[in-house]
Design a protein around this nucleic acid. Sequence first.
DNA 1: ACTGTTTGGTCAACTGAATTGACTAGAGCT
DNA 2: AGCTCTAGTCAATTCAGTTGACCAAACAGT
Lengths: 165, 165
Amino acid sequence: MTRSVSKSATSYGDRQEVPIARLCAMAYRSLIDELHERLAARGYKDVKRSYGFVLLPAREKTKTVNDLALEMGFTKQAASKLVESMRESGYVKLVPNPADARSKFLRLTPKGERLLGHVESIYRELESEWADVLGVKRMESLRGDLERVLRARGEGALPGIRPAW
Amino acid sequence: MTRSVSKSATSYGDRQEVPIARLCAMAYRSLIDELHERLAARGYKDVKRSYGFVLLPAREKTKTVNDLALEMGFTKQAASKLVESMRESGYVKLVPNPADARSKFLRLTPKGERLLGHVESIYRELESEWADVLGVKRMESLRGDLERVLRARGEGALPGIRPAW
DNA sequence: ACTGTTTGGTCAACTGAATTGACTAGAGCT
DNA sequence: AGCTCTAGTCAATTCAGTTGACCAAACAGT
């Protein structure tokens, strides 16, 4: 169920310029869908779409649940639940912060590190498939331009990545 | 570049290449957040993030609720609820399909047309702000390349735009 | 026509990811 | 000692989406 659409839909697009926002949404969805299909093919069937945004902070080794909540732009309760779900699946763990007994550091487990390795390798696959269409040069312009524009709006920092519409 | 103001957030990004998927997610969020802030500033405070994806099909004049569900890649029940919520707010209406008594056509109300006009004008604003950073030429390459790569993967058609992560 | 099957839509109940609100324990300040 | 702020949790709620049961109109194929 919930098949993705192909040619029947989206009669629009030949007519006039497609807004960048729309293209970014489509690109994001398309990449993330592919990522998770390929992860599943590699045996990771319990990885939710939101897990990806926890893996990188967890690699930092000094991020807390609260940091995560701030970066993702939602409440610490929500972040806590997400982390708990990943903890149950064995991808992350929480270790005490020696300098502050209230907070805990988010860490990858070995299983989580392996997962992150797969994610990165699949991203490389997907991006090289994009490069097959665009050419390496335009591909790197695309990445560079997106990053430049985002940093320009965020005073040098990349913005957070919130879920939902 | 990267004055690395961002110690708290996203400390990553100076180190290695940011995945395209991540950049697209950030770009999408950033544009949509701005859109809704500016819509609110123009008096549209009851517009949900999902409404945008209904306005365009509604303009087509011959799209049904079911068409919408297929394009958005979720169930007709969900599409129906979304349309109902927009109907209650007065942005769309449903008119009978003379050729098939089961189905109804989605149509914009005058209020909905005005909203769509604002959305398009704000997108033009935002895209011209992007062009201030990138230059018009790179901006159009960006749009063109994104569209090209998406069409290549979708056999010529642009993919749907699903919500959620 | 008479069936049987498919299609467009709705009603109702449920799920799950997020929210708000109330709370505890540790830190930090004066 | 206080008084306040911060990190995290527990519990109840909201809300967008789902599944499942259903109906009426459309569309077969005899």
